[in-house]
Design a protein around this nucleic acid. Structure first.
Lengths: 221, 221
DNA sequence: CGTGGACTTGAAATCCATCAACACAAGTGG
DNA sequence: CCACTTGTGTTGATGGATTTCAAGTCCACG
């Protein structure tokens, strides 16, 4: 299952100390890096989407984050990746070498100390929200919160095009894919969302205020 | 509900630039700091235990972390606390002023940049494990994992004295307190643990290997 | 003693996962 | 182009895990 993927466009201004970068393309469901591998690169998504996840011995999967174009992933303060990363669909990324960020020369990687701290602190905040979601919210609340998040991150487009499958959403929300489907159907039946096309990945949010209510309270009808 | 608590022992070597610190004592269930308050101090527990948590509007509570003697809590890279902190039982803490760590003079607080990064990265790692626990593990697995964690953090004593109530454990694990109780009872019936005393807070782990199995697999009998 | 809080246990109800079947689209190879 | 397969999504039926509701016990503490 070796990874031989896409173009490789090194760019380095001659004679100047500039960040090296390369572009890569990964095909659907291909691994970008594996848990416990040396964390040599940071990634920025040009197009497509990426899931980072952990597996339990028996195959249960928990997705820690879903990354969209513009997002950075693979940042580590330690020496190894703590998640596996896979391309969800055809995905282009730009990679830059990260020197050992933690304990090494912080400036060498092109990240300032404050920048690195900001990125890690952002991950922490998202993980803490995720804990609240998984620990104390019902299935419909989780799905509503997920849709709000995607809507926000994709800049509230008229048509929300989800790049991931139901299974990915389920493993991000700690649910079964059938439950995710059922919540979508319920929201559709209540007029909160609609499918403008045959594709079930394309969604129109008819009532964002109602969706926000659904994300917060058990008492919504 | 104002907080007027305990002794206040400022210490400053005269003429030298030394970290200011004070000791405080909080009584059972008293708030140490509230969510969204300015993050002016960091805390280190001398004795007792502390829970940090978030509340949903309808009162559901998710405990993000349980802090034991020696632990530091209240570290923030931003300007405000993101959790509420309460003393679980009678608790002594030592506090130090944290200058605005993020964007300010990193060194002013007595924390080096690397030290701060290490602390935040540690929080991130714990939050990510917590996500896996809440998203993909069953109730018995969560309780077993909790007991393993407490056993490790309290240095595997003969008698494990839990400082928190069942409800705190439940809100940390995303379960009801009755479910936590039932898991404890099941483990006791199977000989994995025992109560050496009348107090249900004091636990003896008879079979740590078995407990580790229970924490990892659905297939344990 | 009496009261209240923490813990336990049982019974019932609820939510969600699992199992199963089907629809539909997108390949794939003849 | 068609037959076949595969993957994805949907929906229904069922069962199980966990919550909720309801007692009841045992301390701790006034």
């Amino acid at each position: 299952m070796l990874q031989i993927a896409g173009s490789h466009n090194d760019s380095k201004a001659p004679g100047s100390k500039q960040t090296l970068w390369s572009d890569f393309t990964y095909r659907r469901d291909n691994e970008i890096f594996g848990e416990a591998e040396p964390a040599d690169y940071v990634y920025r998504i040009t197009s497509g989407a990426v899931r980072t996840f952990k597996l339990l011995p028996d195959g249960r999967r928990q997705i820690g984050a879903l990354h969209l174009p513009g997002d950075i992933f693979g940042i580590e303060s330690g020496d190894f990746y703590r998640f596996t990363a896979e391309a969800i669909g055809e995905t282009r990324v730009r990679i830059a070498k990260q020197e050992r960020l933690f304990g090494g020369d912080l400036e060498a990687s092109g990240f300032s100390s404050k920048e690195l701290l900001r990125l890690i602190a952002g991950s922490l905040e998202r993980a803490e929200s995720h804990v609240l979601l998984l620990g104390r919210q019902s299935a419909p609340e989780r799905v509503a919160a997920f849709l709000m998040e995607m809507d926000r991150r994709l800049r509230s487009p008229k048509i929300l095009v989800l790049p991931m499958r139901r299974r990915d959403i389920a493993d991000y929300l700690g649910l079964s894919h059938e439950t995710v489907t059922r919540c979508f159907s319920t929201f559709r039946d209540r007029g909160v969302l609609g499918y403008p096309d045959i594709s079930r990945r394309e969604i129109v949010l008819h009532d964002r205020a109602r969706l926000a209510q659904l994300a917060m309270g058990r008492t919504s009808t």
